[in-house]
């Protein structure tokens, strides 16, 4: 059984920092390096920003649930929203050769995390599962 921590923030950009501080502290506490903790925090922050922008179509009083399951060899984040369903086929990283603003968030998430899975099989909203393994403990 994993150890589980759960956070919930309103889908308001001003609260993202609180989430970042919590995730970073958690990652450092369970043994990720500072660089890994920073990168994981970036990925979770990008995922939450995408929820605000796309699932809720902007700031909202609706919640973002962040569930963190800590296993012996990995940490798993489940980021759940209750907004507009994502069209998974349309979620893709931009081509990095193409220098333009925007479209970077998904690239950063996929670069940093070991596994990225979208689950839209909920009656309402979406869930993004992000996994990061501890180095040498896959």
């Amino acid at each position: 059984m994993p150890e589980t921590l759960e956070f919930m923030i309103p889908a308001e950009p001003k609260y993202l920092k609180i989430n970042r501080l919590s995730i970073k502290l958690l990652c450092e506490l369970i043994g990720f390096s500072t660089v890994e903790s920073n990168n994981i925090t970036l990925a979770i922050d990008e995922a939450c920003s995408n929820v605000i922008r796309h699932a809720y179509n902007g700031p909202s009083k609706e919640p973002i649930h962040i569930k963190c399951n800590i296993y012996g060899n990995k940490i798993e984040f489940l980021i759940r929203d209750f907004g507009r369903k994502a069209n998974v086929d349309q979620i893709k990283s931009r081509e990095l050769d193409e220098i333009r603003p925007g479209g970077l968030g998904v690239h950063l998430i996929k670069t940093v995390m070991d596994e990225v899975m979208y689950d839209t099989n909920f009656e309402k909203g979406n869930q993004l599962k992000l996994i990061k393994h501890f180095k040498g403990r896959k």
Binding site: E46, R100, P101, G102, G105, L108
Partner: peptide, 14 residues
Amino acid sequence: MDSSGVATLVEALQ
């Protein structure tokens, strides 16, 4: 800095 910050600088640069 997140991707929105980077995107802001990319836009300014362009």
